[in-house]
Design a protein around this nucleic acid. Sequence first.
DNA 1: CAAATTACGTACCCTTAGTTACGAAATTAG
DNA 2: CTAATTTCGTAACTAAGGGTACGTAATTTG
Lengths: 200, 200
Amino acid sequence: MPERSPSRGRPKTLDRDQVLQTALMQYWSKGPNEVAIGEICTLTGASKPGVYREFGSDDGLKLAALDAYSHLVIRPFFEVLEHDRSFGDAQTALIDFTTQDRAAIGIPNGCLHVAMRAQRDKLGVMTREKVDLLRQEGLDNYAVWIEQAKSRGEFRMDIPTDIVALYFDAQNGGAMRMQTEGVPNDVIAKVMRLALMAIQ
Amino acid sequence: MPERSPSRGRPKTLDRDQVLQTALMQYWSKGPNEVAIGEICTLTGASKPGVYREFGSDDGLKLAALDAYSHLVIRPFFEVLEHDRSFGDAQTALIDFTTQDRAAIGIPNGCLHVAMRAQRDKLGVMTREKVDLLRQEGLDNYAVWIEQAKSRGEFRMDIPTDIVALYFDAQNGGAMRMQTEGVPNDVIAKVMRLALMAIQ
DNA sequence: CAAATTACGTACCCTTAGTTACGAAATTAG
DNA sequence: CTAATTTCGTAACTAAGGGTACGTAATTTG
Protein backbone atom coordinates (compact mmCIF):
# COMPACT_ATOMS: atom_id res chain seq x y z
CA MET A 1 0.00 0.00 0.00
CA PRO A 2 2.82 2.51 0.66
CA GLU A 3 3.38 2.48 -3.12
CA ARG A 4 7.13 2.90 -2.78
CA SER A 5 8.81 5.07 -5.36
CA PRO A 6 10.42 3.37 -8.37
CA SER A 7 14.19 3.31 -8.68
CA ARG A 8 14.33 5.22 -11.92
CA GLY A 9 12.42 7.81 -13.89
CA ARG A 10 11.84 11.46 -13.20
CA PRO A 11 11.43 12.03 -9.47
CA LYS A 12 8.01 13.03 -8.24
CA THR A 13 7.63 16.61 -7.16
CA LEU A 14 3.89 16.68 -6.42
CA ASP A 15 3.31 16.96 -2.72
CA ARG A 16 0.42 14.56 -2.20
CA ASP A 17 -0.07 15.48 1.40
CA GLN A 18 -0.16 19.18 0.76
CA VAL A 19 -2.76 18.75 -1.97
CA LEU A 20 -4.82 16.49 0.26
CA GLN A 21 -4.69 18.83 3.24
CA THR A 22 -5.60 21.79 1.08
CA ALA A 23 -8.48 19.91 -0.50
CA LEU A 24 -9.73 18.81 2.89
CA MET A 25 -9.68 22.30 4.32
CA GLN A 26 -11.33 23.75 1.24
CA TYR A 27 -14.09 21.15 1.13
CA TRP A 28 -14.60 21.48 4.85
CA SER A 29 -14.80 25.25 4.98
CA LYS A 30 -16.60 25.95 1.70
CA GLY A 31 -18.52 22.75 1.08
CA PRO A 32 -17.52 19.77 -1.05
CA ASN A 33 -19.23 21.11 -4.15
CA GLU A 34 -18.02 24.66 -3.93
CA VAL A 35 -14.41 23.85 -4.67
CA ALA A 36 -13.09 23.12 -8.15
CA ILE A 37 -10.03 21.00 -8.70
CA GLY A 38 -8.45 23.88 -10.55
CA GLU A 39 -8.78 25.96 -7.40
CA ILE A 40 -6.90 23.40 -5.38
CA CYS A 41 -4.22 23.36 -8.05
CA THR A 42 -3.87 27.11 -7.85
CA LEU A 43 -3.64 27.03 -4.08
CA THR A 44 -1.02 24.32 -4.00
CA GLY A 45 0.89 25.13 -7.15
CA ALA A 46 0.19 21.66 -8.46
CA SER A 47 -0.87 21.01 -12.03
CA LYS A 48 -4.22 19.45 -12.89
CA PRO A 49 -2.72 16.39 -14.56
CA GLY A 50 -0.56 15.99 -11.49
CA VAL A 51 -3.56 15.91 -9.23
CA TYR A 52 -5.33 13.51 -11.57
CA ARG A 53 -2.34 11.22 -11.68
CA GLU A 54 -2.35 11.14 -7.90
CA PHE A 55 -6.06 10.87 -7.11
CA GLY A 56 -7.57 9.59 -10.33
CA SER A 57 -10.60 11.84 -10.41
CA ASP A 58 -12.61 14.42 -8.60
CA ASP A 59 -14.39 11.58 -6.88
CA GLY A 60 -11.04 10.09 -5.87
CA LEU A 61 -9.82 13.35 -4.38
CA LYS A 62 -13.03 13.82 -2.42
CA LEU A 63 -12.83 10.27 -1.19
CA ALA A 64 -9.26 10.80 -0.03
CA ALA A 65 -10.26 14.03 1.70
CA LEU A 66 -13.21 12.39 3.44
CA ASP A 67 -11.00 9.54 4.51
CA ALA A 68 -8.48 11.96 5.97
CA TYR A 69 -11.33 13.76 7.69
CA SER A 70 -12.59 10.57 9.24
CA HIS A 71 -9.20 9.96 10.83
CA LEU A 72 -8.74 13.55 11.85
CA VAL A 73 -12.17 14.24 13.29
CA ILE A 74 -14.68 11.43 13.23
CA ARG A 75 -12.50 8.83 14.86
CA PRO A 76 -11.43 11.13 17.72
CA PHE A 77 -15.04 12.13 18.10
CA PHE A 78 -16.16 8.58 18.76
CA GLU A 79 -13.16 7.86 20.87
CA VAL A 80 -14.60 10.36 23.28
CA LEU A 81 -17.33 7.83 23.92
CA GLU A 82 -15.01 4.94 24.54
CA HIS A 83 -13.14 6.24 27.50
CA ASP A 84 -14.22 4.51 30.59
CA ARG A 85 -16.43 7.11 32.07
CA SER A 86 -20.03 7.56 32.98
CA PHE A 87 -22.70 8.13 30.37
CA GLY A 88 -23.24 11.63 31.65
CA ASP A 89 -19.56 12.53 31.57
CA ALA A 90 -19.25 11.20 28.06
CA GLN A 91 -22.15 13.38 26.96
CA THR A 92 -20.50 16.42 28.44
CA ALA A 93 -17.30 15.51 26.67
CA LEU A 94 -19.22 15.21 23.42
CA ILE A 95 -20.61 18.69 23.79
CA ASP A 96 -17.19 20.08 24.63
CA PHE A 97 -15.69 18.38 21.62
CA THR A 98 -18.38 19.70 19.32
CA THR A 99 -18.49 23.26 20.56
CA GLN A 100 -14.84 23.95 21.17
CA ASP A 101 -13.52 27.17 19.71
CA ARG A 102 -12.48 26.13 16.26
CA ALA A 103 -11.03 29.41 15.15
CA ALA A 104 -8.50 29.07 17.96
CA ILE A 105 -7.39 25.66 16.71
CA GLY A 106 -7.48 26.71 13.10
CA ILE A 107 -10.11 24.29 11.88
CA PRO A 108 -13.29 25.21 10.02
CA ASN A 109 -16.76 25.21 11.47
CA GLY A 110 -19.26 22.51 10.65
CA CYS A 111 -18.63 18.91 9.67
CA LEU A 112 -17.47 17.68 6.29
CA HIS A 113 -19.37 14.43 6.71
CA VAL A 114 -22.61 16.19 7.58
CA ALA A 115 -22.12 18.51 4.61
CA MET A 116 -21.51 15.57 2.30
CA ARG A 117 -24.57 13.80 3.59
CA ALA A 118 -26.60 16.84 2.62
CA GLN A 119 -25.07 16.81 -0.85
CA ARG A 120 -25.02 13.07 -1.26
CA ASP A 121 -26.50 13.06 -4.74
CA LYS A 122 -23.86 15.42 -6.07
CA LEU A 123 -21.00 13.15 -5.07
CA GLY A 124 -19.26 10.48 -7.10
CA VAL A 125 -19.93 6.85 -6.30
CA MET A 126 -16.80 6.21 -4.26
CA THR A 127 -17.26 9.21 -2.02
CA ARG A 128 -20.96 8.49 -1.69
CA GLU A 129 -20.30 4.95 -0.56
CA LYS A 130 -17.81 6.19 1.99
CA VAL A 131 -20.34 8.72 3.25
CA ASP A 132 -22.90 5.97 3.71
CA LEU A 133 -20.36 3.76 5.39
CA LEU A 134 -19.33 6.45 7.85
CA ARG A 135 -22.96 7.16 8.64
CA GLN A 136 -23.60 3.52 9.44
CA GLU A 137 -20.41 3.25 11.47
CA GLY A 138 -21.43 6.32 13.40
CA LEU A 139 -24.81 4.86 14.24
CA ASP A 140 -23.12 1.62 15.26
CA ASN A 141 -20.71 3.48 17.51
CA TYR A 142 -23.54 5.25 19.23
CA ALA A 143 -25.39 1.96 19.60
CA VAL A 144 -22.47 0.24 21.31
CA TRP A 145 -22.05 3.15 23.67
CA ILE A 146 -25.76 3.24 24.52
CA GLU A 147 -25.94 -0.50 25.06
CA GLN A 148 -23.04 -0.21 27.43
CA ALA A 149 -24.74 2.56 29.35
CA LYS A 150 -27.88 0.46 29.54
CA SER A 151 -26.04 -2.54 30.83
CA ARG A 152 -24.41 -0.39 33.47
CA GLY A 153 -27.77 0.92 34.53
CA GLU A 154 -26.81 4.44 33.50
CA PHE A 155 -29.53 4.78 30.92
CA ARG A 156 -33.17 3.86 30.76
CA MET A 157 -33.98 0.57 29.07
CA ASP A 158 -37.38 1.51 27.71
CA ILE A 159 -36.15 3.23 24.56
CA PRO A 160 -34.79 1.10 21.72
CA THR A 161 -31.07 1.60 21.19
CA ASP A 162 -31.37 2.28 17.48
CA ILE A 163 -33.82 5.10 18.16
CA VAL A 164 -31.46 6.68 20.64
CA ALA A 165 -28.60 6.28 18.19
CA LEU A 166 -30.57 8.14 15.53
CA TYR A 167 -31.40 10.75 18.13
CA PHE A 168 -27.74 11.39 18.93
CA ASP A 169 -26.88 11.46 15.27
CA ALA A 170 -29.63 14.01 14.71
CA GLN A 171 -28.42 16.20 17.57
CA ASN A 172 -24.91 16.16 16.24
CA GLY A 173 -26.13 16.97 12.74
CA GLY A 174 -28.19 19.83 14.12
CA ALA A 175 -25.24 21.20 16.06
CA MET A 176 -23.03 21.08 12.99
CA ARG A 177 -25.66 22.78 10.90
CA MET A 178 -26.04 25.53 13.48
CA GLN A 179 -22.31 26.02 13.53
CA THR A 180 -22.26 26.30 9.75
CA GLU A 181 -25.08 28.83 9.92
CA GLY A 182 -23.15 30.96 12.35
CA VAL A 183 -24.83 30.23 15.67
CA PRO A 184 -22.28 30.90 18.44
CA ASN A 185 -20.75 27.87 20.09
CA ASP A 186 -21.99 28.71 23.55
CA VAL A 187 -25.54 28.86 22.24
CA ILE A 188 -25.08 25.55 20.45
CA ALA A 189 -23.79 24.08 23.69
CA LYS A 190 -26.94 25.20 25.47
CA VAL A 191 -29.14 23.63 22.84
CA MET A 192 -27.17 20.40 23.06
CA ARG A 193 -27.41 20.33 26.83
CA LEU A 194 -31.14 20.74 26.45
CA ALA A 195 -31.20 17.84 24.02
CA LEU A 196 -29.29 15.59 26.36
CA MET A 197 -31.12 16.72 29.46
CA ALA A 198 -34.29 15.35 27.95
CA ILE A 199 -32.97 11.86 27.74
CA GLN A 200 -31.89 11.31 31.28
CA MET B 1 -49.26 43.00 -8.75
CA PRO B 2 -51.66 40.79 -10.72
CA GLU B 3 -49.84 42.11 -13.81
CA ARG B 4 -52.95 42.08 -16.00
CA SER B 5 -52.48 41.07 -19.61
CA PRO B 6 -52.10 43.85 -22.17
CA SER B 7 -54.90 44.39 -24.67
CA ARG B 8 -52.86 43.71 -27.74
CA GLY B 9 -49.82 41.78 -28.83
CA ARG B 10 -49.38 38.06 -29.22
CA PRO B 11 -51.28 36.22 -26.51
CA LYS B 12 -49.24 34.48 -23.85
CA THR B 13 -49.16 30.72 -24.02
CA LEU B 14 -46.67 29.96 -21.27
CA ASP B 15 -48.38 28.39 -18.30
CA ARG B 16 -46.67 30.11 -15.40
CA ASP B 17 -48.33 28.01 -12.79
CA GLN B 18 -47.48 24.74 -14.43
CA VAL B 19 -43.84 25.72 -14.75
CA LEU B 20 -43.78 26.85 -11.14
CA GLN B 21 -45.41 23.69 -9.83
CA THR B 22 -43.07 21.53 -11.85
CA ALA B 23 -40.04 23.46 -10.66
CA LEU B 24 -41.19 23.22 -7.07
CA MET B 25 -41.70 19.47 -7.23
CA GLN B 26 -38.40 18.93 -8.98
CA TYR B 27 -36.41 21.07 -6.54
CA TRP B 28 -38.18 19.48 -3.63
CA SER B 29 -37.71 15.89 -4.68
CA LYS B 30 -34.25 16.09 -6.23
CA GLY B 31 -32.71 19.06 -4.48
CA PRO B 32 -32.52 22.68 -5.65
CA ASN B 33 -29.18 22.22 -7.34
CA GLU B 34 -29.90 18.96 -9.08
CA VAL B 35 -32.41 20.40 -11.50
CA ALA B 36 -31.46 22.40 -14.57
CA ILE B 37 -33.81 24.94 -16.07
CA GLY B 38 -33.66 23.04 -19.35
CA GLU B 39 -35.05 20.02 -17.53
CA ILE B 40 -38.04 21.98 -16.32
CA CYS B 41 -38.56 23.22 -19.85
CA THR B 42 -38.56 19.69 -21.18
CA LEU B 43 -40.99 18.54 -18.53
CA THR B 44 -43.42 21.38 -19.13
CA GLY B 45 -42.95 21.91 -22.84
CA ALA B 46 -41.99 25.50 -22.20
CA SER B 47 -39.08 27.17 -23.97
CA LYS B 48 -36.09 28.47 -22.10
CA PRO B 49 -36.59 32.08 -23.15
CA GLY B 50 -40.20 31.74 -22.08
CA VAL B 51 -39.18 30.68 -18.62
CA TYR B 52 -36.61 33.48 -18.45
CA ARG B 53 -39.19 36.05 -19.54
CA GLU B 54 -41.44 34.86 -16.75
CA PHE B 55 -38.99 34.39 -13.90
CA GLY B 56 -35.99 36.45 -14.91
CA SER B 57 -33.28 34.02 -13.95
CA ASP B 58 -32.48 30.75 -12.27
CA ASP B 59 -32.44 32.64 -9.01
CA GLY B 60 -35.87 34.10 -9.78
CA LEU B 61 -37.36 30.70 -10.50
CA LYS B 62 -35.94 29.22 -7.31
CA LEU B 63 -37.21 32.18 -5.33
CA ALA B 64 -40.68 31.73 -6.80
CA ALA B 65 -40.58 28.01 -6.03
CA LEU B 66 -39.45 28.61 -2.45
CA ASP B 67 -42.16 31.20 -2.03
CA ALA B 68 -44.76 28.74 -3.27
CA TYR B 69 -43.32 26.16 -0.91
CA SER B 70 -43.59 28.49 2.04
CA HIS B 71 -47.29 28.93 1.40
CA LEU B 72 -47.89 25.28 0.66
CA VAL B 73 -45.94 23.74 3.52
CA ILE B 74 -44.21 26.09 5.90
CA ARG B 75 -47.21 28.24 6.67
CA PRO B 76 -49.51 25.27 7.36
CA PHE B 77 -46.75 23.78 9.45
CA PHE B 78 -46.64 26.76 11.78
CA GLU B 79 -50.39 27.08 11.79
CA VAL B 80 -50.36 23.75 13.56
CA LEU B 81 -48.87 25.59 16.51
CA GLU B 82 -51.39 28.37 16.54
CA HIS B 83 -54.52 26.40 17.16
CA ASP B 84 -55.66 26.91 20.62
CA ARG B 85 -54.53 23.70 22.16
CA SER B 86 -52.17 22.52 24.81
CA PHE B 87 -48.41 22.55 24.33
CA GLY B 88 -48.37 18.77 24.41
CA ASP B 89 -51.14 18.39 21.85
CA ALA B 90 -49.44 20.83 19.55
CA GLN B 91 -46.22 18.82 19.74
CA THR B 92 -48.10 15.67 18.83
CA ALA B 93 -49.68 17.49 15.92
CA LEU B 94 -46.24 18.62 14.79
CA ILE B 95 -44.98 15.08 14.73
CA ASP B 96 -48.04 13.90 12.84
CA PHE B 97 -47.63 16.67 10.31
CA THR B 98 -43.96 15.90 9.81
CA THR B 99 -44.22 12.13 9.59
CA GLN B 100 -47.42 11.70 7.63
CA ASP B 101 -47.25 9.33 4.71
CA ARG B 102 -46.14 11.59 1.91
CA ALA B 103 -46.27 9.06 -0.87
CA ALA B 104 -49.99 8.74 -0.18
CA ILE B 105 -50.51 12.48 -0.62
CA GLY B 106 -48.19 12.68 -3.58
CA ILE B 107 -45.63 15.04 -2.08
CA PRO B 108 -41.88 14.43 -1.84
CA ASN B 109 -39.98 13.54 1.28
CA GLY B 110 -37.80 16.04 3.04
CA CYS B 111 -38.12 19.81 3.16
CA LEU B 112 -37.17 22.22 0.41
CA HIS B 113 -36.26 24.89 2.91
CA VAL B 114 -34.01 22.58 4.88
CA ALA B 115 -32.39 21.44 1.65
CA MET B 116 -31.81 25.02 0.57
CA ARG B 117 -30.34 25.90 3.94
CA ALA B 118 -27.82 23.13 3.42
CA GLN B 119 -26.96 24.49 -0.02
CA ARG B 120 -27.18 28.12 0.91
CA ASP B 121 -23.93 29.13 -0.76
CA LYS B 122 -24.97 27.66 -4.08
CA LEU B 123 -28.09 29.78 -4.32
CA GLY B 124 -28.57 33.16 -5.92
CA VAL B 125 -28.88 36.22 -3.74
CA MET B 126 -32.67 36.52 -3.88
CA THR B 127 -33.30 32.92 -2.97
CA ARG B 128 -30.64 33.05 -0.29
CA GLU B 129 -32.23 36.07 1.31
CA LYS B 130 -35.59 34.36 1.28
CA VAL B 131 -34.05 31.27 2.87
CA ASP B 132 -32.61 33.40 5.65
CA LEU B 133 -35.88 35.22 6.11
CA LEU B 134 -37.85 32.00 6.39
CA ARG B 135 -35.38 30.65 8.90
CA GLN B 136 -35.75 33.72 11.07
CA GLU B 137 -39.53 33.66 10.75
CA GLY B 138 -39.53 30.03 11.74
CA LEU B 139 -37.50 30.73 14.86
CA ASP B 140 -39.82 33.62 15.68
CA ASN B 141 -42.86 31.42 15.26
CA TYR B 142 -41.43 28.84 17.62
CA ALA B 143 -40.57 31.59 20.09
CA VAL B 144 -44.09 32.98 20.18
CA TRP B 145 -45.51 29.51 20.69
CA ILE B 146 -43.06 28.72 23.47
CA GLU B 147 -43.67 32.02 25.24
CA GLN B 148 -47.35 31.29 25.12
CA ALA B 149 -46.83 27.85 26.63
CA LYS B 150 -44.67 29.38 29.33
CA SER B 151 -47.27 31.99 30.20
CA ARG B 152 -49.88 29.27 30.43
CA GLY B 153 -47.71 27.32 32.78
CA GLU B 154 -47.45 24.47 30.28
CA PHE B 155 -43.71 24.70 29.88
CA ARG B 156 -40.82 25.21 32.24
CA MET B 157 -39.56 28.74 32.59
CA ASP B 158 -35.94 27.90 33.31
CA ILE B 159 -34.82 27.51 29.71
CA PRO B 160 -34.46 30.59 27.52
CA THR B 161 -37.03 30.74 24.76
CA ASP B 162 -34.51 31.31 21.98
CA ILE B 163 -32.64 28.17 23.00
CA VAL B 164 -35.82 26.12 22.88
CA ALA B 165 -36.69 27.63 19.52
CA LEU B 166 -33.32 26.56 18.13
CA TYR B 167 -33.92 23.16 19.65
CA PHE B 168 -37.23 22.72 17.85
CA ASP B 169 -35.72 23.98 14.64
CA ALA B 170 -32.92 21.46 15.01
CA GLN B 171 -35.34 18.60 15.66
CA ASN B 172 -37.34 19.48 12.61
CA GLY B 173 -34.20 19.73 10.50
CA GLY B 174 -33.06 16.37 11.79
CA ALA B 175 -36.40 14.78 10.98
CA MET B 176 -36.35 16.17 7.47
CA ARG B 177 -32.83 14.96 6.93
CA MET B 178 -33.73 11.49 8.12
CA GLN B 179 -36.68 11.43 5.79
CA THR B 180 -34.44 12.45 2.92
CA GLU B 181 -32.02 9.70 3.87
CA GLY B 182 -34.76 7.11 3.78
CA VAL B 183 -35.47 6.50 7.45
CA PRO B 184 -39.08 5.24 7.75
CA ASN B 185 -41.61 7.73 9.05
CA ASP B 186 -42.59 5.62 12.05
CA VAL B 187 -38.96 5.51 13.15
CA ILE B 188 -38.65 9.26 12.67
CA ALA B 189 -41.77 9.72 14.77
CA LYS B 190 -40.18 7.69 17.55
CA VAL B 191 -37.05 9.80 17.47
CA MET B 192 -39.12 12.97 17.54
CA ARG B 193 -41.16 11.73 20.47
CA LEU B 194 -37.92 11.07 22.26
CA ALA B 195 -36.77 14.58 21.49
CA LEU B 196 -39.94 16.15 22.82
CA MET B 197 -40.17 13.83 25.79
CA ALA B 198 -36.93 15.24 27.05
CA ILE B 199 -38.21 18.75 27.24
CA GLN B 200 -41.26 18.21 29.40
C1' DC C 1 25.98 8.37 -24.05
C1' DA C 2 21.71 5.81 -25.48
C1' DA C 3 17.71 3.55 -23.99
C1' DA C 4 14.19 2.93 -20.86
C1' DT C 5 11.35 4.78 -17.49
C1' DT C 6 8.63 7.87 -14.89
C1' DA C 7 6.70 12.33 -13.87
C1' DC C 8 5.78 17.08 -15.40
C1' DG C 9 2.61 20.64 -17.05
C1' DT C 10 0.83 23.47 -21.16
C1' DA C 11 -2.83 23.67 -23.84
C1' DC C 12 -6.41 21.69 -25.08
C1' DC C 13 -11.13 18.96 -25.30
C1' DC C 14 -15.91 18.28 -24.00
C1' DT C 15 -20.05 18.57 -21.48
C1' DT C 16 -23.26 21.02 -18.75
C1' DA C 17 -26.01 24.70 -17.84
C1' DG C 18 -27.26 29.57 -17.38
C1' DT C 19 -28.45 33.12 -20.55
C1' DT C 20 -29.77 35.76 -24.73
C1' DA C 21 -29.90 37.61 -29.80
C1' DC C 22 -33.07 37.80 -33.03
C1' DG C 23 -36.36 36.89 -36.52
C1' DA C 24 -41.04 35.01 -36.78
C1' DA C 25 -45.81 34.76 -35.19
C1' DA C 26 -50.10 36.45 -33.25
C1' DT C 27 -52.92 39.85 -31.92
C1' DT C 28 -55.26 44.71 -31.59
C1' DA C 29 -55.63 49.73 -32.80
C1' DG C 30 -56.46 52.88 -36.53
C1' DC D 1 -54.46 46.36 -44.59
C1' DT D 2 -50.67 48.52 -41.94
C1' DA D 3 -48.47 49.66 -37.92
C1' DA D 4 -47.65 48.86 -33.34
C1' DT D 5 -47.21 45.68 -29.84
C1' DT D 6 -46.27 41.61 -27.37
C1' DT D 7 -44.80 36.93 -27.06
C1' DC D 8 -42.73 32.87 -29.10
C1' DG D 9 -38.87 29.68 -29.59
C1' DT D 10 -34.66 28.17 -32.40
C1' DA D 11 -30.15 28.49 -32.23
C1' DA D 12 -26.84 30.24 -30.66
C1' DC D 13 -23.24 32.28 -26.86
C1' DT D 14 -20.53 31.87 -22.69
C1' DA D 15 -18.34 30.34 -18.47
C1' DA D 16 -17.15 26.80 -15.48
C1' DG D 17 -15.20 22.79 -14.59
C1' DG D 18 -13.93 17.84 -15.07
C1' DG D 19 -10.65 15.45 -17.65
C1' DT D 20 -6.64 14.35 -20.96
C1' DA D 21 -3.28 14.25 -25.23
C1' DC D 22 1.15 14.83 -25.78
C1' DG D 23 5.66 16.67 -26.02
C1' DT D 24 9.26 17.58 -22.55
C1' DA D 25 12.18 16.96 -18.52
C1' DA D 26 14.61 14.23 -15.14
C1' DT D 27 16.30 10.14 -13.61
C1' DT D 28 18.55 5.25 -13.59
C1' DT D 29 20.41 1.27 -16.09
C1' DG D 30 23.80 -0.75 -19.21
